[in-house]
Design a protein around this nucleic acid. Structure first.
Lengths: 232, 232
DNA sequence: AAACTGCGCAAAGATTCCGTAAAGATTCCG
DNA sequence: CGGAATCTTTACGGAATCTTTGCGCAGTTT
């Protein structure tokens, strides 16, 4: 970002919607650039990486999902999806593909801008490396800087994947972390459907961290959704 | 809204009903404007966009549905429908067309005003881009970010479908949610006709959330139409 | 009064999801 | 090169969830 004003890429095929978005964005301190097709979007993302992407799900030459996947391959740029009221299931697909938020048409300018600000704020937080250096919960202690895990002051050895999963859970301690999020954290975007990997590695983590793996203190299962690390 | 008092457009052909509504609205801090026909309503909506619309379903020169569709084309203004008890199917058609809630004639002033306030509150929340991260009502608390539900500070476990239904109801707290909306939220667009699924899952939700499932505090049945979660 | 409709509720059956073990494949590292 | 650690694959019993089925009740219609 060589400029202070964030660059927003709008992927949208309806001219009128583009016009509305351009006006809304430019009158609120953001720079506007646009793409009409999935192909154009992908090339613009490469040529001039935007600070945020607004993508319409209902695109002509392919699903808008492809924009999301393409953008997620090599960046964590915030993505806000536009969708019609009816496409509930599409929203979920979009979020799973890596979108950060969605706005339902018709929407107000205030609503859209609020979502955009949230996205930009998160990105800024990530960029400035704002992350806790250590996590403590009961007998468990994770020193992220040293990449060191101890249980009752006894060091615990974790494999790389186990460690990535634990860090992912810690980053959202108290919240449910979905299967796809965990799979993304452990294996990357490739194997989002291999849920049984997760079961095997959660078993491993529990064996190493829990007194009684069958009745876990730290790592809780949310059937059909994901896992949750207890908060304090 | 250049004025603090919200502007309410009443679309109604019976003079007496217009008089009652005008008095009710104006003595409760709202501005009143009226339309007698669908055509007049549409032109007034364009000329001076109201903050809320009250539309009688039984209009002479065309169904009141046309008012709803016309208004929904380019705005998300709250729409409350007036209907007679007999027009069950019309209510559903109106809600599907984009109405937010309905009031059955005869109605009390208090009942109507409560619905209007809910509609205006939702509109204000949308305009400011407020996507609620938590919902609290009496002893019930739903933390959407954490995906956690507590009742009197005791965690309540909900299955995925139960949770989706509850979130759907919360999004329209105080307003009716139709069977098909709930079915869509819980199961996707496939099973819109399996209404008995809803009964079973509402039973489950009430068992988990209500003190006396037979006399619910939170989850109310709107016979023939859908369900309603109480507003604060 | 009988038939119908929409709703609440219970319980059994079917399916999906989860935890665990163990064996093969791959990578890491001395 | 060879062993150790790690990752992947396969398999299966049990648990949680979802679906199906059936019945009783209340309000409404015929």
């Amino acid at each position: 970002m060589t400029e202070a004003r964030p660059l927003v890429l709008v992927v949208e095929d309806e001219p009128q919607m583009r016009r509305v978005l351009r006006l809304t964005l430019e009158s609120n301190g953001m720079r506007y650039t646009e793409a009409i097709s999935v192909r154009e979007a992908i090339s613009k993302i490469r040529a001039q990486p935007p600070d945020l992407i607004i993508a319409d799900l209902a695109l002509p030459d392919g699903e808008g999902l492809r924009v999301i996947r393409a953008a997620r391959e090599d960046s964590s740029v915030p993505i806000v999806v536009l969708s019609a009221r009816s496409q509930e299931s599409d929203k979920i697909a979009a979020l799973d593909a890596g979108a950060d938020d969605y706005v339902t048409k018709p929407f107000s300018a205030g609503e859209l801008l609020a979502r955009l600000r949230v996205g930009l704020r998160h990105a800024a937080a990530r960029a400035s490396g704002e992350s806790p250096e250590a996590f403590t919960l009961l007998d468990l202690r994770v020193d992220i800087l040293q990449r060191r895990v101890t249980l009752r002051n006894v060091p615990v050895h974790l494999t790389p994947i186990e460690y990535r999963l634990l860090i992912c859970l810690i980053a959202k301690a108290g919240q449910v972390v979905t299967h796809s999020e965990l799979l993304r954290a452990g294996w990357g975007a490739a194997k989002l459907d291999q849920q049984h990997y997760l079961r095997i590695y959660m078993t491993g983590l529990r064996r190493k961290l829990e007194l009684d793996p069958a009745r876990p203190t730290y790592l809780h299962t949310e059937t059909g959704v994901g896992y949750r690390l207890s908060a304090d």
